[in-house]
Simulated scan of single mutants.
Amino acid sequence: MPFIDQFTELAPVNLLVNIIDVLLVWFVLYKVITLIKGTKAVQLLKGIFVIIIVQMLTDVFGLDTLFWIMEEVTNWAFLAIIIIFQPELRRALEQLGRGKLFARTILQEAEEQNRLIEAMKKSIIYMAKRRIGALISIERETGLNEYIETGIPMNSITTSELLINIFIPNTPLHDGAVIMQKNQIAAAACYLPLSESPFISKELGTRHRAALGISEVTDAITIIVSEETGAISLTSNGDLHRDLSIEEFETRLRKAWFGPEPELVNSSIWTWRGKKNG
């Protein structure tokens, strides 16, 4: 329409449209990055960047044969990306179809957080009563893929029954740590770095040293159930909280994992409150 065309040619309108355009592009890129974060797609993207850099260098230094090879590789890159990233693209399309790719309500997030906390609490209570040793590390901002690769991949939805079965003595997966990513058990029987701090109490065993070690090099939260006493401990940011009651454990875990706790007021309004550190 001529009138609209004349209106959009105005400088302030063009500026606003360009700003919105850039913001939308950054938002889509952010969602794509969060979608592939913690997957093998991140490593594959690094490989693609290496190929692009090599192609630029071959052009600069006049390496014609290598440049031709890199050019052929990049010409087929689009098809290769579709094939390589097929699981991630499928998951993105499924989420888009369910309307969950770009938005998730506070209610949905709170329900999932409560489900994870309840699953963790139920499994810890069971194992603590029976003195079943356990070591569970929860990924936060710092990726734990380096340690996940040392264990047995699982990629399973977190449930209390699965956690309990993993740590039952004399089973193939009980020795080592479980590492969780978001709402999934990424791997079991993983090796964590042991803390080398000279100030650790001599009475602490390998599980506690591993929990402290991973908390010193990452921001992961790690839960320990003592095999000797059944005591519950938790590490975060290099600090060890020992002999926690189940109420203290739940409070510390929720605060460290999710931050302020959502609270439903009048069945329709959500507010946020911070629980006191137990």
Results as ranks from 00 to 15, higher is better:
137 S>C: 15
145 N>V: 03
57 L>I: 14
74 T>E: 15
2 P>Q: 07
112 E>S: 09
144 L>C: 05
142 T>I: 14
141 E>M: 11
225 V>S: 04
121 K>I: 05
177 A>E: 01
167 F>K: 06
116 L>H: 07
250 E>K: 08
114 N>V: 05
117 I>A: 13
5 D>C: 13
35 L>W: 03
64 D>C: 06
124 I>E: 02
124 I>A: 04
181 Q>P: 00
231 A>I: 05
119 A>W: 04
104 R>V: 04
15 L>T: 05
272 W>Y: 13
80 A>G: 15
228 E>I: 14
34 T>Y: 15
90 R>Q: 08
232 I>R: 01
242 R>P: 03
104 R>D: 02
171 T>H: 07
255 K>E: 06
222 T>R: 03
115 R>C: 00
182 K>L: 06
110 A>N: 09
271 T>C: 13
28 V>L: 06
148 I>D: 03
91 R>Q: 15
187 A>E: 02
232 I>L: 08
234 L>G: 01
45 L>S: 08
193 P>V: 02
175 D>L: 05
130 R>D: 02
235 T>N: 01
84 I>H: 06
208 H>R: 09
149 E>Q: 10
57 L>W: 11
258 F>V: 01
179 I>K: 01
194 L>E: 14
78 F>E: 12
130 R>H: 04
245 S>E: 03
194 L>H: 12
175 D>W: 04
108 Q>I: 08
197 S>I: 11
